Computed example of a mutant assay.
Amino acid sequence: MKKCLIVYFSQGGTTKKTGEAIAAGFQAEGWATDLVNLNANLNPPSSFDEYDIIGFGAPTYFYKPPFNVTEYIEKLPDLNGKPFFVYILFGTYKGDAGNFIRKTLTEKNGRETGYLTTRGADMFLGYLREGSLFSPDRPNEEDLSIAEKFGKGLANGNYNSSIPKDQAPAFLNKLERLFLTPYLFNHIYTKFFKVNSDLCISCGICKKVCPTCNIEMDEDKKPVWGKDCIGCINCEMKCPTEAITSPFAWPLSKIFLKMNVYKASHDPEIVTVPVKQKNGKLIRL
């Protein structure tokens, strides 16, 4: 029996759901599939010899893959001609998030066979606090049906070896990305994650939801951030007392956030619903 491995990173569940739909396509054609969520600093295996094809899925963070996905891809062994496919989810604009993964896998002697992009609900706190949820309820049934057909096609050998690269984001978004690098997050920005001791109830939710186990609790059971932050600010978003603040509250950050929200909310191709983010909960208005 042929076998497929799909490695994905998913926090809200949309990337996982899409990966499961792709896997269902393979399974419908008689393949065995393994799905692995790339969290808690998962290290790649020494080889992928037991698999006939491997897939990688990721959301788009700041128009590029999350830092932990980038790090995982860079650590992969030589693929020795192994077929691979990539799928990317995005809430507003995908930018060239898929290009890095595809390029790196090709440089590791992988053979690209397919590439899929689809929308997913944009749960970035910066946008939610500006009152906008982009691409709500995506991926929807149509998206998942397309993903399943994508998997079926790959299982049947319908490979595409000449897939065009994604276009780079606009100039201002490229400028934004210059301020959002792993080095800056882990050597500078994490020093500015703050917790209001008067508001903190020591519930530990921030530690629990951190995808890279970057948060520890001090002797007073207050969060302390390490040097493995990917900038998801899930800790801040899920805090039930809004005791946490991050550098995304800085005036410069807010300029970019407001610019991005304005552009996306006026784009007829992007569905936007008004929301309110309060005490760790999202309320649609």
Results as ranks from 00 to 15, higher is better:
231 G>V: 02
91 G>M: 14
192 F>I: 02
116 L>W: 00
250 W>S: 12
84 F>V: 01
279 N>G: 02
73 I>V: 15
117 T>P: 00
266 H>L: 09
87 Y>R: 12
203 C>G: 09
219 E>H: 08
18 T>Y: 05
24 A>F: 01
43 N>F: 09
101 I>F: 12
131 G>Y: 07
124 F>C: 05
131 G>F: 07
229 C>I: 06
25 G>N: 00
46 S>V: 08
105 L>H: 12
187 H>Y: 11
191 K>E: 10
163 I>L: 13
202 S>M: 12
268 P>L: 08
92 T>H: 02
26 F>R: 07
197 S>C: 04
146 I>D: 10
114 G>R: 08
154 L>S: 04
79 L>C: 02
5 L>K: 12
64 K>D: 09
217 M>F: 04
88 I>W: 08
59 P>Y: 14
80 N>C: 14
69 V>N: 14
4 C>A: 15
76 L>M: 15
105 L>A: 08
219 E>W: 01
46 S>F: 09
3 K>N: 11
205 I>N: 14
112 E>W: 06
236 E>M: 15
282 L>C: 02
213 C>H: 11
243 A>M: 10
158 N>D: 08
137 D>T: 04
149 K>V: 13
194 K>D: 02
34 D>E: 14
106 T>L: 13
43 N>G: 03
29 E>C: 10
17 K>C: 06
179 F>G: 13
264 A>I: 01
203 C>R: 08
198 D>G: 00
59 P>V: 14
24 A>Y: 00
281 K>M: 09
150 F>K: 05
33 T>N: 08
284 R>E: 09
75 K>N: 05
75 K>F: 00
124 F>R: 02
4 C>R: 03
259 M>W: 14
144 L>E: 09
200 C>W: 04
171 F>Y: 14
70 T>S: 15
6 I>K: 09
25 G>F: 02
253 S>D: 13
110 G>V: 01
125 L>M: 07
79 L>I: 01
152 K>F: 05
264 A>N: 01
177 R>P: 13
51 Y>L: 01
214 N>R: 11
200 C>H: 03
194 K>W: 03
88 I>T: 10
218 D>L: 12
277 Q>M: 13
190 T>N: 15
274 P>C: 03
124 F>Q: 03
179 F>L: 15
115 Y>P: 03
239 C>E: 03
238 K>I: 09
143 D>G: 00
275 V>L: 09
15 T>C: 07
162 S>F: 08
202 S>T: 07
258 K>F: 05
83 P>H: 08
69 V>G: 13
